[in-house]
């Protein structure tokens, strides 16, 4: 008869879980991205599983399906390109740095950001895909003048993201360039558009991309609109507002304003000032999605 004492097999059971790649993958998929970033340090084997693109795709897919119920976090831009992460559960603003000098977030999509960066006020604009969880980024090498730019990423449909870029042509029409992260190249799409106008941004919604034009100044007295965050379900969408010393949230369903963060006792608070820039709130999603 086989012998099996608990104390000896507890060591081996732990060792088996910790060293079998398949079981480890199945197991690690349940962890939040932040824990996994730390657990890369457990051993080289854990590092190789957690940092492999196939695991990161699986993890993004698993968590994008389960995120719906949790409260979203945000990235807010303060003066002089200072960014803060706002976690609704801790009700504090945590400083965040991209490591670039002049940063503008153009879009946030399932954990990836589309950034516009400059080294100086009038320097070249570089466009990056940035994952604020892993701090990994990729330069898109977009040096063409464009009239619309949009990031499309939905892990439940494809592990790869695309960047759509609308560029003007000579005959006052425009054409679409598509960057695909599967090949990391820009390709000309066959479609062309007769109308040519400058857009402020693009939104990916229900399989379509909408480039939009309007640019209103969202400031009403001492209330400023920071942004609208679209939920997975339409009724989950919210508006973020800023009044002196506070970040407010408006939920469409409940039709109520709530104070999300009160930072009047923090060191960076300035009396009587609106310290966050309008239309500069973007959803922050912890994700291991590769760039």
């Amino acid at each position: 008869m086989m012998q099996c004492t608990r104390s000896s097999s507890i060591r081996s059971s732990a060792a088996i879980i910790g060293s079998n790649d398949d079981l480890l993958t199945e197991f690690l998929i349940f962890f939040p991205a932040k824990s996994l970033i730390r657990f890369q340090l457990v051993s080289k084997q854990w590092h190789s599983v957690i940092s492999s693109p196939s695991f990161r795709h699986l993890h993004s897919l698993h968590h994008c399906r389960r995120r719906a119920k949790s409260q979203p976090s945000f990235l807010l831009r303060g003066a002089v390109s200072r960014f803060f992460i706002c976690h609704p559960t801790v009700k504090r603003l945590v400083p965040f740095s991209f490591g670039f000098k002049k940063v503008n977030i153009l879009r946030s999509c399932h954990g990836l950001l589309l950034l516009e960066c400059r080294k100086t006020n009038f320097g070249y604009k570089d466009y990056y895909i940035f994952n604020p969880t892993t701090m990994k980024f990729r330069n898109l090498w977009l040096r063409k003048a464009f009239i619309g730019l949009c990031l499309v990423f939905d892990p439940s449909r494809s592990p790869h993201y695309r960047v759509l870029c609308l560029v003007p042509c000579e005959n006052s029409s425009s054409r679409l360039l598509v960057y695909d992260s599967e090949t990391h190249t820009w390709k000309d799409s066959v479609e062309s558009y007769t109308r040519r106008q400058k857009f402020c941004g693009g939104i990916y919604w229900n399989d379509d991309v909408y480039f939009y034009k309007s640019r209103h100044i969202y400031v009403y007295g001492n209330i400023r609109l920071l942004g609208m965050i679209r939920g997975d379900r339409e009724e989950d969408s919210i508006l973020l507002f800023h009044v002196t010393g506070k970040i407010m949230i408006y939920r469409f369903v409940a039709e109520v304003f709530e104070v999300l963060v009160d930072f009047r006792s923090e060191g960076y608070f300035r009396e009587g000032l609106l310290q966050f820039e309008f239309k500069n709130a973007h959803q922050f999603i912890e994700s291991l999605a590769p760039v």
Partner: peptide, 27 residues
């Protein structure tokens, strides 16, 4: 079970994980 374990482990130190899983630090 894996989900429950992840829940217990997610805020633990790396050293705790190494101990529990009998993993040598090879860095």
């Amino acid at each position: 079970v894996a989900k429950k374990m992840a829940d217990i482990m997610k805020n633990k130190l790396v050293e705790w994980v190494r101990r529990e899983f009998d993993i040598q630090n090879d860095y």
